[in-house]
């Protein structure tokens, strides 16, 4: 296991092996996505209170999960990069940032579309919505910082510190926002009406969550491969790889 991880940390090996994984991951993404959408949009019964419009949940909830999951993952990789100085870890962090920001945006947007028929407003200053918005700001700050520093390595390391500071702060921000909201106004906004969700809705939700994870993996590996090539463009193996292809 360790040996494999160690091998994976070498850019060349990473490039080769992930090239083989991507078609499989992509295929699985499409299959789970279709299955999840079929069960979610067609098979699952309408909600007894929310009718059909609850179905946006099958996009909204997995996107919100991904938005948080990716941030934690980025913090994990930044930690690895700062401690063991593994180049690939920061390649993964940098490649994840835009994806994380898009999932956050998607969660906010679908939430707002869902909120309009349910709560009668596009946006309410609810604790969860506000935390998600702040998470989007954190992602955008990270992207702006990495874009502003010219040297790739320095940018990735500086971004890593920011991500780690952010991950310490996220729980604090989340709970302070929750506290702020509960003090200002009572729970005027009802969340999912039932605390426990029915199985016929839970299964498509979980399928969609798996599908989103697979999508993330596929795309992040594609981005990371491009990033690896770009960083290693002067090394012998990249030249060999593309020199060979061109001459063929």
């Amino acid at each position: 296991m360790w040996q494999f991880l160690h091998k994976l940390a070498s850019p060349r090996y990473f490039y080769d092996i992930t090239g083989k994984w991507i078609p499989w991951l992509g295929g699985l993404t499409v299959i789970t996505l279709l299955a999840g959408l079929y069960y979610g949009l067609i098979k699952a019964p309408p909600d007894y209170q929310q009718g059909e419009s609850y179905r946006i949940m099958f996009i909204h909830v997995p996107a919100a999960w991904m938005s948080m999951f990716i941030y934690v993952l980025m913090a994990f990789w930044s930690g690895i990069n700062l401690i063991w100085n593994i180049k690939l870890a920061d390649v993964m962090t940098v490649s994840s940032a835009t994806l994380g920001a898009s999932f956050t945006f998607l969660a906010l947007m679908t939430g707002s579309l869902w909120g309009k028929p349910m709560w009668g407003a596009w946006w309410v200053w609810d604790a969860r919505l506000t935390s998600e918005l702040i998470l989007l700001f954190l992602y955008l700050g990270y992207i702006a910082l990495v874009a502003a520093i010219e040297d790739r390595r320095t940018a990735a390391r500086a971004g890593g510190v920011l991500i780690l500071v952010g991950v310490v702060n996220i729980p604090i921000i989340h709970y302070s926002v929750e506290w702020w909201n509960t003090l200002h106004q009572g729970p005027t906004v009802t969340k999912l009406d039932k605390p426990s969700i029915h199985l016929s809705m839970l299964i498509p939700l979980l399928i969609m969550a798996v599908s989103f994870k697979l999508y993330y993996l596929t795309v992040v590996l594609m981005r990371a491969r491009a990033e690896v090539l770009d960083r290693e463009r002067r090394s012998a193996w990249v030249r060999e790889l593309f020199g060979a292809k061109e001459s063929r």
Binding site: I134, F137, L138, L140, G141, A144, L145, L162, V165, G166, N169, I172, I173, S176, V177, W179, W180
Partner: peptide, 12 residues
């Protein structure tokens, strides 16, 4: 941009 989100708990 970097710091504002981190200031939110203090402000609250």
């Amino acid at each position: 941009l970097l710091i504002m989100p981190l200031y939110i708990p203090v402000l609250i």
